[in-house]
Write a protein that binds this DNA or RNA. Structure first.
Lengths: 347, 347
DNA sequence: ATGAAAGCGCTAACAT
DNA sequence: ATGTTAGCGCTTTCAT
């Protein structure tokens, strides 16, 4: 299939108008009489005409492509391990479908945030694809090397999971509020020794969630104990170490909030091996709410990130922005949910 | 960013050669002196030149795009439910990375196999993207409306999970052998009343797996009992019904092979509610080996589909085929694995 | 409201 | 071995 079956030229001939008129019709531009418009649309329908995205990009200013950039190492590791992390799926769920609704396509790429030449990788994708917009996911969302480059180039972009102001559309959830909600839930259940396992500090949300935890303790009149705060990196292994530490304290934690499902699963694992009952001896609250938490024994209470909704909002904003619409640059804060399950109540 | 920053023209000027020579160098074509080639490559490097994929498609015959087509309803349902099905992830894992290695990109699209106009949807994607190859996944792989269309158009395509011969590269695993292996595993453990829950009959593999089950029983000298064969559709709900039926038999099943993780999880669920111990009272073997089986209690013995490997092979074949290479049309049968876990042995 | 001409960044076919 | 000439299928001026 080297030549396109039906081009704008065929449609123009079929409808008896110029190429330009066909172009106007398929792009919903003004200055076409209704009768002509109908005639062209009929010809498009009859011939089954679909514009070539390559030609549209080359001729005009738009590519009808939205580029989604994910962290290479973490994404591949997730795929390789098959831990059930569905970040990518949820992003596609929200992003792809919204793009499709607007006649756009989402192209998904992996970029290594740590490479000396992040810029090279991003520039290569920009040059090859010339997307109308770029969706950044953590930790790219707060990577100044990337955001600066996009800003310089004038490419509209969205930062998912970032509450920071600055160039690009920030779309996130209130991570601190989520940290508070998780902690308040445990306080309401009567817990006073609540441990917190934070995530990779490279991720801004790791700090925000921990701050929420501290706020909730303070508001609940519970003195902060630095020993109850452990540093993790989202991984199962780091969760094991953190949980061991929290349970080895002279006055051990009776509840743990961990910043990722894998770390919470690790805490569950540690509890099991110590003969602790969950939630009776140790209550657990997780973050992310990936599928595995529903299959854990007991199922885990967890904070849900609205990933699909964030991706959808990002795509929508970028498409409107690239169409020249002026858009409110304020950060969009999307609601999270705390799904209460048997790791904190009943069981 | 309406105009491209650096084009082939800039490179040509920088290197002091014609556009054509630059084109030859970036496409690794012959008839360029080493000295000139080096000069051009230096200019490319210095300017950070990356060819526009749109221009390449328009000018030449190749788009450097591989299109992967998945079933719309099932994929979206999987995303919505968040059951942990990682088919899409594994496909991207194998497909995207292999494409990237060859300078290609994989574009992922959803097509409803049931629509009266499947052809319309596929044609639209072909016309808009003009991919160099198409990867079909079940149930598209065996959908004649799609394969015929691709064949007519001369678009190279691969059929993942299809053992059937015909146009396109068939890349699958030996589903019957997998059904046999699962059954033999149970026979070896002494089971004689082995139930089988098949998947959606629209999927060819559903039939193949069941045939393998029958073959293993026959080879093991166990008489087939039609009551031990239940029809499911891959879903949890259908698995519950099937498991209830198998356990309600006058002579109930002591082991069940179910054609999807969700159906096996359903059987586990039913067993739990009936107070049956797994594997002591009921042994379970699953198909797919998605992440959730590792988190089930007990973890499930399961057959692993080599999805990433199949997607990788598909991408590789299509890229080579679109480069004009003559390729052996024989089906590629990739190895599966039976991961033995506590739902059949020990506990 | 419509059309004609030019050109986007590349590659194919044809020179040389 | 290298350069020149035409397009590819659209959108963008600019005319009318």
């Amino acid at each position: 299939m080297s030549r396109q079956a039906v081009t704008i030229r065929h449609v123009a001939a079929e409808a008896g108008v110029s190429l330009q008129t066909v172009s106007r019709v398929i792009n919903n531009e003004p200055n076409v009489r209704d009768a002509v418009r109908a005639r062209v649309n009929a010809a498009v329908e009859r011939l089954g005409y679909i514009p070539s995205i390559a030609a549209r990009r080359l001729g005009g200013a738009r590519s009808y492509l939205i580029l989604a950039l994910n962290d290479r190492d973490r994404t591949i590791e997730g795929w390789r391990l098959g831990e059930g992390n569905d970040w990518v799926d949820q992003m596609l769920y929200g992003g792809m479908l919204t793009c499709a609704q607007h006649g756009y396509r989402m192209i998904f790429e992996l970029v290594d945030t740590h490479a000396e030449h992040v810029e090279r990788a991003v520039l290569a994708a920009l040059a090859a694809l010339r997307p109308d917009g770029v969706v950044l996911t953590p930790p790219h969302s707060d990577n100044p090397a990337i955001t600066r480059l996009l800003e310089e180039r004038g490419v509209p972009f969205a930062r998912i999971g970032s509450g920071e102001t600055g160039a690009g559309f920030a779309i996130g959830m209130d991570e601190a509020a989520a940290g508070r909600a998780a902690t308040e839930h445990l306080l309401a259940l009567g817990h006073r020794r609540i441990g917190f396992v934070s995530g990779d500090p490279e991720y801004r949300l790791s700090v925000d969630r921990r701050d929420g935890y501290r706020q909730a303790l303070a508001a609940g009149g519970v003195a902060a104990d630095p020993a109850l705060e452990q540093q993790g990196d989202f991984s199962f292994a780091s969760g094991v170490i953190a949980a061991e530490a929290l349970l080895d304290l002279p006055s051990p934690a009776t509840a743990i909030v961990a910043s990722s499902d894998q770390m919470t699963l690790a805490a569950l694992h540690v509890a099991y091996h110590r003969g602790l009952r969950v939630p009776a001896d140790l209550a657990l609250v997780s973050f992310d709410d990936t599928p595995v938490v529903r299959f854990a024994m007991p199922p885990l209470t967890a904070v849900t990130q609205p990933i699909a909704a964030m991706a959808s909002a990002a795509a929508e904003l970028l498409i409107r922005a690239s169409a020249g619409e002026a858009i409110d640059p304020e950060p969009r804060i999307l609601p999270f949910a705390l799904n209460v399950r048997a790791s904190t109540v009943g069981g």
